[in-house]
Design a protein around this nucleic acid. Structure first.
Lengths: 213, 213
DNA sequence: CTGTATTTAATACGACTGTACCCGGAAAGC
DNA sequence: GCTTTCCGGGTACAGTCGTATTAAATACAG
């Protein structure tokens, strides 16, 4: 089919799909997933509904592609969990990693708002939940491996359940994300204090890390 | 108005509003807030659209009433945070309280699903977030007071930031709720382990002391 | 009974939804 | 030139949405 006859106007399909998806995510960040319709996405992308329909035959397919895009971005961030910068004490490295996962500036807050929208939809749509759950499992594995490594080099007090610890840390991260998104002013000192407490809980260090007040 | 002239068919307005709201919440639990429309609510409540419109002149008002209903139910549950049963060791009382807040059976899972739906909507609608934030503030206050009392009677290691501690515990509860809702099988051992770890973190019980540092 | 006031069912309306379809424009091979 | 293929704007269609309006049914005072 592709090789016979003339080759008409050729267009990078993947690029177009990403373009439309970016428009969808902008709408989601601004007004939530409920504001996403084929028409609003087309308007945001600066094209017609027919163009959107060409690359996403149905709205569900479009949403699934957007979900996979968001999950992929999150997966990329999670990959950096493995290790903090070498030569850094483990508590500091862990703290830095966790702070990087939190929506502490406007850009990451926008991303978190998108993430939360899909996250909430997963509470009703099991096929969304499956994708997200797999990502969470991956994150837990990375964190657990980091704990195991830290223990092996003597930077982490031995004898702890790394899996439960990783799950707890990720749970705290989830809760913190929602808490930050819910507060109008953004991040508060309690949020940072919670990260410090989580790090202290894992590493078992005794002193408090001087919160700026 | 009410005293003049004849008094025709009289119905309990509040009862009707609660009836309609209950139908709305059933739909929300089953299919999420996006499935809530005036028509679906009327059908679930077993009446016509006009009847719903009589008691809720607009859909927003209906949703707001439902939100306040849900928040009120949650407020009733967090009122029990103040103190566990007297004569119970503080760690056990705290653990029991936290376990009661978690959706560990089908009934509470349904309630949590409703709660999560409104929670997610609050991430986009600030007027929802304000109500929920106030409730969270209240819960934090109760928890903080419980910590202060426990410290005063010598059941809690002194010198901790009760407010930050309470915020952290509530954050863990939020994260756990989402985690439980997301997993298909319901509650896992990691969730209960997270509660134990949180209790241990707060009470500083002796199972994990002595950092070499 | 009549009269009056309230509840409710039914419907109408305009806007929006997802999807299917059509047709003109654009590039490449003949 | 023409043909072939893809692309994308425009539109039609059957629903559902929230809301306003209408008319019938109902229950009590007189």
């Amino acid at each position: 089919m592709r090789d016979t006859g003339g080759v008409p106007k050729v267009v990078d399909h993947d690029e177009r799909r990403r373009h439309v998806t970016a428009a969808l995510l902008r709408i989601t960040e601004r007004e939530g997933l409920e504001a996403v319709s084929v028409r609003t996405v087309a308007a945001e992308a600066g094209c017609s509904v027919g163009a959107v329909q060409r690359y996403f035959s149905t709205k569900d397919e479009m949403l699934h592609f957007a979900l996979r895009t968001v999950v992929e971005a999150e997966r990329e961030r999670i990959r950096h969990i493995r290790l903090g910068p070498a030569g850094m004490p483990f508590p500091d490295a862990l703290r830095a990693t966790l702070l990087e996962l939190l929506p502490l500036d406007a850009r990451r807050e926008g991303e978190a708002r998108i993430w939360a929208a899909f996250y909430a939809r997963a509470a009703v749509h099991p096929e969304f939940a499956a994708v997200i759950d797999e990502l969470n499992r991956e994150a837990r594995g990375n964190l657990r491996a980091a704990f195991a490594y830290a223990e092996s080099v003597g930077e982490l007090r031995p004898g702890q359940d790394h899996d439960a610890l990783a799950q707890l840390v990720l749970t705290i991260m989830d809760g913190l994300m929602w808490s930050i998104l819910m507060r109008p002013g953004g991040v508060h000192r309690d949020h940072l204090a919670a990260v410090d407490t989580a790090v202290r809980l894992v590493t078992g260090s005794a002193s408090s890390p001087a919160p700026p007040s």
